[in-house]
Design a protein around this nucleic acid. Structure first.
Lengths: 210, 210
DNA sequence: CCTGCGCAGTAACATTAGTTACAGAGGTAT
DNA sequence: ATACCTCTGTAACTAATGTTACTGCGCAGG
């Protein structure tokens, strides 16, 4: 655990803070598809992602979903932090997009470290900053783009975080993430294939030239 | 200025911090329609809103706008904070929705106070928290609601922040904020009038029973 | 009083997205 | 092999939203 932590966070946290994290944090290794958190859950701890990708979803009352963004190594969940402060319930759902390793830190330490360590403050502020901009960019996509553009953006982003130009998703999976319907996605994917940008297969698709 | 500051922020900031703010902050009084900030501007300072309402807009490359949320007294702009940290340009546009009074604080102080004052830390974290949730809620509206629902929500929210059940906007104004077109808004407003929920006039409308 | 301009109302149409329904392809378990 | 289930392809239709075009109203300024 110490090794993992140092590799990912050694550059930004001072030695002493790393040691504190090791003492109070718990190491966790979870498989793809693992559900960290559902909307309405109380937050137990704050995750520091070591490896893997976690996808953060929003859901409305009717169960309609929408992908907000991905967390990658070195990221933490600002939503979680935001929730901790207000002792509130989670506003989002978190699912492991790939196998992932992470360290859970008790939320009580947040406040303490914020006062004590400059590097921790910077980390927390920076996380908020990144996440705000990520949310803004998600908002842009939805507000200003049409479904075909959003789909292309989705495929690119998913390919980027998984470092794989094969997208292992069914059309229905994609439709959920984009909050659309399967038929619409099939239609648009077909167009992309006709344009030579992707190649469709059963249960996955290849990105050729997006 | 001290008086204003104490009235709005006396409960949450300790005496010493208030004094510091008074020393380095500059008081500003701006009229309705004043443009605080455009996308791409560098941030000069951080605003602490004393009175009035500021509306925060997002804009894409084509100049299409979208209302993100309103800032009210006691609020600050998390976007600004986020930008300060990264020494980045503004991602948003800010316009005074009503006449407003505020205090501008040099951004250098942020980091210093964050280490020094617990109340300041809480304030900053809380602002991030509130803003993240505000953004999430905006996202919900756009992703999960149809235009008629969004319009109703818009009218309610605008009425709430201005404390006025008369909305002083043209249909075109509303269309800009919701990133729609004038004709669509006119159509929907007419329906609301037929349902007895509002009463339309030239340059303004009355909310009867939303 | 007349003119011009901005605002609102409305119709007709185009485009995008979502829905329903069904057929066929591919893979798995028995 | 057969039966079954999931995934994909496609057509036909509906609904929502956006666009274009034109009309008339109300008000301000000459």
């Amino acid at each position: 655990m110490i090794q993992n932590l140092k590799e990912e966070y050694g550059d930004i946290f001072e030695e002493e803070l790393i040691n504190e994290i090791v003492q109070v944090g718990t190491f966790k290794e979870v498989p793809e598809g693992y559900r960290f958190m559902e909307i309405g859950d109380y937050i137990r701890g704050m995750p520091l992602l070591i490896s893997g990708v976690i996808k953060i979803l929003r859901e409305d009352e009717d169960g309609d979903e929408l992908l907000l963004y991905y967390l990658e190594k070195g990221d933490t969940c600002s939503m979680t932090m935001a929730c901790c402060m207000g002792d509130k319930k989670s506003e989002i759902r978190a699912i492991a997009e790939t196998d992932a390793k992470l360290i859970m830190v008790p939320i009580q330490k947040m406040e303490e470290w914020t006062a004590k360590y400059k590097s921790w403050r910077n980390f927390v502020f920076n996380s908020y900053h990144v996440r705000l901009n990520e949310l803004l960019s998600t908002l842009d996509n939805i507000a200003f783009q049409k479904m075909d553009e959003r789909l292309i953006g989705y495929l690119k982003e998913k390919s980027r975080v998984t470092r794989d130009n094969i997208i292992h998703s069914t059309h229905q999976d994609i439709a959920y993430d984009l909050h659309s319907s399967r038929v619409v996605i099939s239609r648009l994917l077909k167009k992309l294939e006709e344009m030579g940008k992707i190649k469709l297969h059963r249960n996955y698709l290849e990105i050729l030239d997006l």
